[in-house]
Amino acid sequence: MNLSDDKTLIESILGGHHTDFAVLIERYQGLVAHVVARMVPRVSDRDDLCQDIFIKIYRNLGAFQFRSKFSTWIATIAHNTCLNYLEKKRVPLYQDLQVADDDAETQSMEWIPSAEGTPLDRVETRDLRKTLEREIEQIPLPYREILVLFHLEEMSYEEIGEIMNLPAGTVKSYLFRARRFLRDRMLALYHMEAV
């Protein structure tokens, strides 16, 4: 049986071929891992959460109605499972992110282009990635999750909104704020004044 499309795979699993669930794990392990890694700070708990998520997916597979994309449905289960975990651990879920006004940078006009490029151009890529990873871990939860779903999973504002139970406009606004914040932090860390 060709299990390359999700519908056939799901029908096969529901039809009693439970070993085909391994194909589903293989296919969606990356998505689940990305959501868990971005939402759960404690590394030692992440593996157990991934297991719980896949077991929930297996038990609820019959309830999937094909009304949305299967990846959106899986990400929703991953999101809710992590949220429950964080609530139990009393991790603060919704904090704001302070970023400068959108116009502040361009209006001030203090940004003078340099012939040598930006300071970020002069930093080693590996070093930049490490710093960026550390900075991402510092920003509040919804922003982190939106960044991973948008940039890694290439989901639309609407799909992310469905997963996180947020309006698409809010998702878009959070995404811009998070990226602006990260850019400003990176510039500040590498001693360049953007404003």
Binding site: Q29, H34, A37, D47, F54, I136, H151, R179, L187, A194
Partner: peptide
Amino acid sequence: DTYEIVFSGLRQAPQWTPSPQLQ
């Protein structure tokens, strides 16, 4: 350019991967 560098970093997967025994 400064945004491009940040965007390129955001397209990199988080460094954590699940245990190979997960499946």
